[in-house]
Simulated assay, not measured.
Amino acid sequence: MAEETERGPVGGLLPFGVIDVAGPSMRPTLRDGDQVVVRYGARIRPGAVVVVRHPLRQDLLVVKRAAERRRGGWWLLSDNPLVTTDSREFGVVPDDLVLGRVLLRYWPRPRVLGSR
């Protein structure tokens, strides 16, 4: 899961924002409490870490890995194999719910995130 913060895109002019990561689903890549920089509207490729609106609860943002492109959207997976709150539970995520790509973790241990 992720939480939207007040540090999102400035007046909609900049395509970057900050997301606070909540929960264990992206361990070991990301941990609860990490803060990441998101590029909204970025091109998504398989293996990228992405931010999406949850397909069943659109008020909730989630951070997942884009596993593969499927008809109508993206198949998303958690990096933590013990957490199945991903496409195995909610299916393919439509393109319009995919908000952007996580570029880097800047707090507490800065690290650029690439594709697997």
Rank of each mutant, 00 (worst) to 15 (best):
M1T: 14
M1K: 07
M1E: 07
A2K: 05
A2W: 04
E4Y: 13
E4F: 12
T5S: 09
E6G: 05
R7N: 14
R7P: 02
R7C: 08
R7L: 14
G8N: 08
P9S: 15
V10A: 09
V10P: 03
V10L: 12
G11N: 12
G12Y: 03
G12S: 14
G12H: 12
P15L: 11
F16W: 11
F16Y: 15
F16R: 03
G17L: 00
I19W: 12
I19H: 09
I19C: 06
I19A: 14
D20E: 13
V21Y: 05
V21C: 08
G23C: 06
S25R: 12
M26R: 03
M26C: 09
R27E: 15
R27L: 09
P28M: 10
P28V: 12
T29N: 07
L30G: 03
D32E: 09
D32N: 15
D32T: 11
G33K: 10
G33Y: 05
G33F: 14
G33S: 09
G33M: 07
Q35C: 11
Q35R: 15
Q35L: 11
V37N: 02
V37A: 04
R39P: 00
R39L: 08
Y40A: 03
Y40T: 09
Y40F: 14
G41F: 09
G41T: 06
G41M: 07
A42V: 03
R43Q: 14
R45N: 15
G47L: 13
G47C: 13
G47F: 07
A48S: 15
A48I: 02
V49F: 02
V49G: 00
V50F: 00
V50K: 01
V51T: 15
V51N: 02
R53P: 02
P55C: 10
L56A: 13
Q58W: 00
Q58V: 10
L60C: 09
L61E: 12
V62S: 12
K64G: 01
R65I: 08
R65G: 02
A66D: 07
A66E: 11
A67E: 03
A67V: 06
E68Y: 04
E68A: 12
E68P: 01
R69V: 12
R70M: 06
R70F: 04
R71S: 13
G72H: 05
G73A: 11
G73F: 04
G73S: 09
W74P: 00
W74G: 00
W75K: 02
W75A: 01
W75F: 15
L76H: 14
L77S: 08
L77G: 04
S78L: 03
S78M: 13
D79M: 06
D79G: 02
P81Y: 15
P81H: 13
L82M: 04
L82R: 15
V83I: 12
V83G: 01
T84S: 07
T85V: 08
D86F: 10
D86L: 08
S87M: 04
S87C: 03
R88C: 06
R88N: 08
E89Y: 05
F90H: 07
F90C: 00
F90I: 00
G91Y: 04
V93S: 00
P94A: 02
D95I: 06
D96S: 09
D96I: 02
L97D: 03
V98D: 01
V98G: 05
R101Q: 06
V102W: 02
L104P: 01
R105E: 02
R105P: 11
Y106K: 01
Y106S: 00
R109D: 13
R111F: 06
R111I: 04
V112H: 02
V112S: 00
S115Y: 05
R116Q: 00
